[in-house]
Design a binder for these strands. Sequence first.
DNA 1: CTGAAAGCGCTAACAA
DNA 2: TTGTTAGCGCTTTCAG
Lengths: 344, 344
Amino acid sequence: MKSRPVAKPRRGERKSKRVTILDVAEDAEVSFAAVSKVLRNAYGVSDGLREKVNASIKKLGYTPNTAARGMRGRTFVLGTIFPDLRNPFFSDILAGIGAALERTPYQSFLGIEVHSTAPALIQSMIDMQMDGLIVVGSTEPESYLSKVGERIPMVTVGYHLPQITTFDSVNNNDAQSARLTVQHLAKQGYKKLVMLSLETTIGNVIEERERGFLSQAEELGLAGAKVVRAPQTLRDIQVAARRILDEDRPDAIFCWTDFVALEVISVAESLGRSVPEELAIVGHDNTMYCDFEQNSLTSIDQSGEQLGLQAARLLVERIEGRTEAQHLVSQPRLVARNSSAHRG
Amino acid sequence: MKSRPVAKPRRGERKSKRVTILDVAEDAEVSFAAVSKVLRNAYGVSDGLREKVNASIKKLGYTPNTAARGMRGRTFVLGTIFPDLRNPFFSDILAGIGAALERTPYQSFLGIEVHSTAPALIQSMIDMQMDGLIVVGSTEPESYLSKVGERIPMVTVGYHLPQITTFDSVNNNDAQSARLTVQHLAKQGYKKLVMLSLETTIGNVIEERERGFLSQAEELGLAGAKVVRAPQTLRDIQVAARRILDEDRPDAIFCWTDFVALEVISVAESLGRSVPEELAIVGHDNTMYCDFEQNSLTSIDQSGEQLGLQAARLLVERIEGRTEAQHLVSQPRLVARNSSAHRG
DNA sequence: CTGAAAGCGCTAACAA
DNA sequence: TTGTTAGCGCTTTCAG
């Protein structure tokens, strides 16, 4: 016996049927094309029609099906890619992106390179027909990013390539970050400087900081300034810190990001080295943990919020038609706290 | 003069034309339906055909258009919603979700309630035709979440409603978190306990912890145990901590999450109160900052990674057909460090 | 100013 | 086992 021809339940059955543009058209007693025009703010719609349609939209609680939209035009969805979530600095960037998008029709979703690679995430976002991408702290080669930029509007944060034309970028002046640090430490009377840097490179951010660190130290006549690189895991940082403290015996350490600096303080403390009397520590990003009394960490503020804001602004501009590349660089500032206070 | 009929450039022009299922079919010399079947692992495809198609897919670098997929069936995209990114605990949850999804065809994107409300994010995700949602630390009412659960497969983390049938949940036993804390503090010899809790409720997580705290204190005969609530901003936490320290004068404070505990340590230190001799501090979530020597914060570990892993697993099960609700509760454990060490 | 009609790339029922 | 076909909900010409 054949089953009777019922409305096929399929998988999607559980979802109560969506309100579509046709339902709105019917309710408003207009053609569905008219509804589409109102939705897109297209040219040539009378006020009366617009009002009727908007009333029906509200009444029925209609929201456009983004997937369907994506098949023809824009989705008004942007993708943002972060390397991880552990660094609280990223939440500042996100706040900036949110602020920039607040009064626009755009939404942003995040992809995190935690168990996915950046290329996989980027491909997924393209497959979802997202309108543009903000790529933060990428470690991918320039050639790859350039190709992505040809396929979809893109802005990088932390990957400064002033000559590139296929995407925009927003950056902190990372060399300047290191210069400010060295100047500050020198002024406080510290003389033997080590920079605890990152093993894997992030765009050209890390190189820039190392470059600024070494050149400024040289200019100020601080002999023996040295760069040591370590991976991002706490274990490796601990080992590196211990070795620096035992072997290089600097009186100041500049760390590429705050949590590394906090770990170095931790190691120094467990080794009985007093901060800042015997050892100054400076971090980078000025995250909320710097302010705690027990850390009181001098740090470089690169205003993640501003970076995110500008990135989102540039991206929307690109999506809406700009074709010449823009590359923004913002100036960091040093926030002095106890961890680099002494040594008059 | 009319413009000549060129291939219309439109907005999407910049994007080099996508490889579609038709291109693959042509290259493999089969019908495009055959390609779709291979893609979906559908029943009734010969090995020869499958191989030919897979070769063409690889050769052409084809990836399915998720938007088009979303119009008919599944997208294999999940949405995860976090209240914010500042709490490093969330990155543990994310790691768990990533681990669970690693060997599946599913991808997860994040929405953060920073400038968007949860309902707006949820609606966007539904509009993108995502297959399911993981909602973490929501403050929305049960009635609303229940309605969402009827429309789309959903799992909540941090919203334990054992009776609800429209979605699954994964939770830490939050009452037990507080009980463990009180037991530990009592054993260490601390007697006057205050819990520094959150003003706005997160699911029922906060209530549960408060309940466990008060009942366990009573059971152990610790008179005068008290709950104080404060908003999540550093400023408010500072004010509250100062007031507690000045007025309530407890010898131990249990904080609902680690960064609050760190702020309390900071305030205590600036007030000249020594931790743990005069004052014990216990946090919650056992985030990486607890381990730093300068904090050495006793904390409750609720294994965010496990919570995320289970949530993703349940969600995939639901998407693939399970209809009876599942509600998981995991047991926390206390990690003792210096901040609650003394008071023999 | 409004509506009719043609697809976008895919899934899944159905026919061969 | 394979191919044909009918949409999914929307944008965007193009005619009226």
